[in-house]
Design a protein around this nucleic acid. Structure first.
Lengths: 231, 231
DNA sequence: TAGCTATCGGATTGGCCTATCCACTTTTGC
DNA sequence: GCAAAAGTGGATAGGCCAATCCGATAGCTA
């Protein structure tokens, strides 16, 4: 796909040898499959198995799971950001807002790994977090536009979207293949509760810092199983 | 090896020796603590450690995790059923309904293990499932009453409560201590979307069988890590 | 109190996980 | 073609987990 330019080191720190590059792509493709099926809790070993490469190759290319997550999901997060952009183009802001929520939650339903990514934070996954924050900025505008038309309740907070993704992740993970469309009903309920006029006040939003801390903690957990943690 | 057994077989199939009974209580108390903190994914070994008993004692008393779950959560599920009963006593059915949802989700927030229990099914946990179905029956009446007053939307389905619990479990598990009250806001949104008149149609409810299958699958997973599962 | 037996709990087996090491193979540049 | 560099994957260490075995211990009953 792109010759140099892997992740953090820079555009072309050192082009990989052809077979190495091939294996790298195979690993990413395998991870896409495995993470989509099993979520981010899938093991590095299972990805290597799926890719048909040795465990060592896995760890040489992606020393931490965060780096793998970055490589696998940064483009999907790009698609997520695009969905926000599309929503911003909708002449009807409320319509755009609703369509965006449904699209975003649909992406969660289609990919367990991405469902996890949307509720976790990975500080070292630079590209991924960059895309995430692009999406976030656009989302703020989307929310403002929707509020301006008066169809989105005034007390809606951007962090509510994170909560919705956490809730949706819960539904998606719990139902899996057994009830693959259950999330649609839940999301529809959410959307209807967001339409103005509000039917009542809401408890205070958790605030960004605590939520970020929660997402961070969840992300850390993914990296390495607790080294020591007894009583 | 084990002549009588304790709970499911009857009140006192074979009274345990005093030290055994003491250990049994210690294990249950420890499990209450550990499950509340770590959810049902906590290991049997960690419960034994917390209880200060040997691993063997653990497995002798509770050969499967389901039996332990039964012993630990059947009384909490009883409290859950009581919450429904209390709600049924409320002169205002809608008020009772809303209070019940908030109480139930609050129980999830206060106990990660119980949050899991409400989204999983454990066929062999007889007492627990008995209580669950008692609660379910009462809940059906609660829903009918709330609908009869016209304040609960007509298209509300009993299975929606399961979905709400799955969503709430997602929020509770994701936020943890970092944002301990986030669930309140999510639940408030849900409640407002349930009040009549409905603001729009909903996608079809998933139906009980698929949801039950989902809960069953989740419960199975808890018992034993997949014996074999490669591609 | 004495002996029988239920019960205890550490050691152990076998599985899966993360992570590293090192002898062998492939690619690349000349 | 050929050698050096880059890359590969199996073996392996160390950890946690479920589950079982068996010598030691503690409770119960006569």
């Amino acid at each position: 796909m792109n010759p140099g330019a892997q992740h953090p080191d820079g555009p072309a720190a050192q082009p990989l040898r052809s077979d190495a590059e091939r294996n790298r792509e195979r690993i990413i493709a395998a991870a896409r499959t495995v993470f989509a099926r099993d979520g981010l809790s899938a093991s590095m070993a299972s990805v290597a198995r799926e890719a048909g490469v040795g465990i060592a190759t896995m760890f040489r290319r992606f020393p931490t799971k965060e780096e793998l997550v970055d490589a696998v999901f940064s483009d999907r997060m790009g698609a997520y950001a695009d969905a926000v952009a599309v929503a911003l183009d909708d002449p009807d802001p409320w319509n755009g807002f609703v369509g965006y929520i449904e699209a975003a939650c649909g992406m969660q339903a289609a990919d367990s790994g991405f469902a996890d990514v949307l509720t976790m934070s990975f500080p070292t996954a630079k590209v991924l977090e960059q895309r995430r924050s692009e999406a976030y900025e656009a989302m703020l505008r989307l929310i403002d536009r929707a509020k301006a038309t008066g169809r989105l309740r005034e007390d809606f907070d951007p962090s509510d979207l994170v909560l919705i993704h956490m809730a949706n992740a819960g539904v998606v993970n719990a139902t899996g293949d057994a009830a693959p469309d259950a999330w649609r009903r839940v999301v529809a309920l959410f959307v209807q509760s967001l339409e103005a006029p509000a039917r009542g006040p809401l408890p205070a939003a958790p605030g960004h810092e605590p939520l970020y801390k929660a997402m961070l903690r969840a992300g850390q957990g993914t990296a390495t199983p607790p080294p020591g943690k007894s009583s």
